[in-house]
Each structure stands twice: as structure tokens, then as C-alpha cells.
Design a protein around this nucleic acid. Structure first.
Lengths: 231, 231
DNA sequence: GCATGTCAAGAGCACTGCTCTCTTTTGTTG
DNA sequence: CAACAAAAGAGAGCAGTGCTCTTGACATGC
């Protein structure tokens, strides 16, 4: 009833929500996440502030929508880049994932901060909405780990960490050993550490060419952490 | 005149500023950086809001003070841990730095977010005040890199990245080759990637024992990136 | 044509940072 | 000890925020 043949009403409503999100993204880009103001959005739309609440329940819900959209946008971009690679070329798959993440992040620093920066104060992302889109990139890395594991026997990890990793392995239900999984976690966090340092300006102008630095370190992660040969 | 024998006035003033910063830190911890409110601080102090402006020029200046204090607190903690290690035990020095950073971060997540999270919207840290305290931890890593370099001939890095690294090497004026410097950057960002993922809740409950995970990955960085033997 | 549901408007509440003026307190000094 | 100046506090006020509520206009579906 609501998805087959949308009524003009539903069309207009969807368009209004799309407009609100578009302007919200612009504000996000120019001012930052905490400066996101429903009143400013209303002004931009030539609308009184209370009217915005017809379309968006609250500021936090708007943030959630933007986060979900951002996760999907990032996921789509990275999936698109990764599927171009030949399946057997593990190194180029890793490179494609990393480069796509960085490219997306530097193009949309505010949205990247929303996903991977400090959590917005007072706001906690509802996992039931953000959880699924938030794992799309992760899943590509997991698939890569499976192919890295293939051929060599899985190695366990000792202690509490080993049990945690086993639980993760069983949760995602793929054939990857604990030790490779741990390598994947480090590669994953290292890559986001690199991107975050660049996007959040932690390098303090050490590098004139961030892309070169990132590509270099991405290969170093592939070699030193994932064990992929870069020759 | 102003630092030898402080007058009672100066004492009271310093105490008032200290109280403001203390309550600000509490608010930061309980609510987050954007929720930091001068009016709320005034309420807590039993003071009218305008009176706070006698001690703190603005909200942004208060944030700057907190950032400088946080950098110094972190730097002090890490320096303290690192100097305990025997100079020749490079691995334990790296471990000490990493563990101290993590410990400090998980104990003060809000202040850590202030330093290494997404930048506070509308606020840009004045480099002339935050620059120096912000490099204290970095300097320990640089010193470690010098000792890693010692004995082996320095290796250059090609291209733009190589020139950037040479500029950094000349800026800090220490005997460390470009290639080791690049390793240091990756180790540095990887470590902060790990800490940020934990503090900012990106792991989504994968690990029950973050400390074990961190210690494990810290050693892996030492081995795979810094080239320190963990045997 | 009319009832129904949607949308916009506007007022209002409680909060924020910040400025201004006025008064009180307080340390110093003649 | 008294007088003075500097510092601190109080309070009003401005412009902004998220959000709620009521009221009126309008289009949609029967």
C-alpha cells in the first residue's frame, strides 16, 4: 500500500525529507556535527522551524538518518572499488578497500567524523538502525581474511583474547583462524587510524602528499600485518 | 612581581580558575565536549553565569585550557612510564608508551576525545598554545626511533613522501632515516587507531578484554612495523 | 461536497554564550 | 584605622538553540 504506486503526498513528503537531509549534509560539511541546527535548515528551506518536525521527529533522528546514509554511501563506494579487483589478487583487494575508504573520507570529512570520530555528545546511535549498514566495509575485510587464511592451517590465540576471537569467528560464521582474525583487526584499525589522523588534522602539516603517505603505509600494513607480499 | 610571592588575590583567582576547570572536566566526562556549559559550571559553583567570565574569557578559551592540561597530563603519564624502562630494552619502551597512552585514554575518554577525536565544531585549537604540549608523547617515540635506527644504515624513501619525511627529519633534527621514520608514523597511527576504536566504541562489543587485545596488537606492531623482536 | 488527514505558522518554554551596567566585597596603602 | 581602587559578583538583556502546543489553511479520498 505504501510502496507500490506512491501517492503525490508520499512523493512530496519523500522529497521534503530528501531536501532536509541534503541541507543538513551541507551544514555538516561547513560547520560540523554539533552545529547542525534544525532552525537553520528551516531557514534555508524558507520554512518555519516547527514545520521541519513534520518530517523529522527530532535532531537526533536526523543525525541517525545521516549516519545510516553515510554508512551506506561508504559501503557502496568501497564495495564498488573492491569488486573491480580479480578475486585472487589479495593485495590489490586490500589496496582497493583502503584507498576507497580514504577517498570517501577526505571527500566527506564531516560525515566521516560522524561515523568514526568521537561520538556526538548526548547522542547514542541506535544499533538496530546503524548496525547493518555499519558492517558493510568490515564484511569485505572479513572476506579478504578468509582468502588469506585459505591454504594455510588456522592458528589459535591464547587466553581471553583467543576466546573473544573465537566468539567473533563463530558470529560471522566464516572459515578464518583466530590468528588471522587478529591480524585483520589490526590492519582494520591501523587503516582507520591513518585516515582519522589525516581527516582530523593530527599530522600538523607533516605531509604535503597524504595520498602518497597513505598508499605507502597501506602496503606496509599489507606486508607487516596481513602478510601479503607487495612485490 | 607576579610569580614570586603570590598575593592572596592571585591565590584566590588561581583557585577559582582551578575550580572552574575541575567542574568543566567533570561535565566533560559525564556529558561530552559539546555539552560543556559555562552556565552549568556557574550553577555548580553557586555563582551567576557572568561571573565566570571574570576568570575565563570564553568557552573556547576554556576548551583550550582543558586541551593543554590534557596534553600535559597525558605527556606526563607516558613519560613517567617510559623512563622506568631500561634504555636498551626498546620493546619494553614501546610497550610502556602504548600501555600508558591506552590507560590514560580509557580513564579519561572525554579528554582523549578532545585531543584525538573529531575536532570540536567551530573551534580550532590555537597551535601556539597546544602545539608544544601536544608533541610530548611524539617525542618519546622519536627518541625510540633513533635507538631503533642506531647501528643500521639509514634508508631513504622515494618520491614526494621521501621529501616530506626528510623535511620532518630535519625539523626534529635527530639521526633517523626516512624509512624508519615512516615505520614510526605507522606504529604511531596504528596505536592511536586501536585506542580510538576502543574509546569511541567502534568494536561494538567484540572484545571482553580490551587490555589483552591491545597488548597483543601492540606487540604485533612492534614486530611487524617497528621490527622489534618480541621473543 | 465534505470529512479526514497533512502541512505550515506562530507563540512559548527552557536552555545556551556572551555583554553590559551596577553594586558589593576585598586587599592594599597612606 | 580609614580611604581608595581593583577585583568580583549580580542581574538584566540579546540572539541563538531544540522542541511542544495550538491554530488555521489546504489538498486528498470517499
Amino acid at each position: 500500500m505504501s510502496r507500490m504506486n506512491p501517492t503525490p503526498r508520499q512523493r512530496a513528503r519523500a522529497q521534503a525529507i530528501e531536501d532536509i537531509k541534503r541541507i543538513a549534509r551541507e551544514q555538516l560539511a561547513s560547520e560540523g556535527s554539533a552545529a547542525l541546527s534544525l532552525r537553520a535548515i528551516a531557514r534555508e528551506l524558507g520554512i518555519v522551524s516547527s514545520a521541519v518536525y513534520r518530517y523529522v521527529p527530532s535532531r537526533d533522528d536526523l543525525l541517525t538518518m545521516l549516519i545510516v546514509d553515510a554508512y551506506n554511501s561508504l559501503g557502496e563506494a568501497v564495495e564498488e572499488a573492491e569488486t573491480r579487483c580479480p578475486r585472487e589478487d589479495l593485495l590489490s583487494r586490500w589496496r582497493a578497500i583502503g584507498l576507497a575508504v580514504r577517498e570517501w573520507a577526505v571527500a566527506r570529512p564531516a560525515e566521516y567524523a560522524l561515523l568514526y570520530g568521537s561520538p556526538v555528545p548526548g547522542y547514542h546511535a541506535p544499533v538496530e538502525q546503524t548496525g547493518d549498514p555499519g558492517t558493510r566495509v568490515m564484511m569485505l575485510v572479513v572476506a579478504l581474511l578468509v582468502d588469506i587464511q585459505r591454504g594455510s592451517p588456522p592458528t589459535k590465540v591464547d587466553g581471553v583474547l583467543g576466546r573473544d576471537l573465537t566468539a567473533v569467528r563463530e558470529a560471522v560464521a566464516v572459515e578464518v583462524g583466530e590468528e588471522v582474525l587478529a591480524r585483520g583487526y589490526l590492519a582494520w584499525t591501523s587503516m582507520f587510524g591513518l585516515v582519522s589522523f589525516e581527516v582530523f588534522g593530527q599530522y600538523n602539516g607533516s605531509f604535503s602528499d597524504f595520498a602518497a603517505h597513505f598508499a605507502y603505509q597501506l602496503d606496509r600494513i599489507a606486508l607487516g600485518v596481513l602478510g601479503l607480499s607487495t612485490t
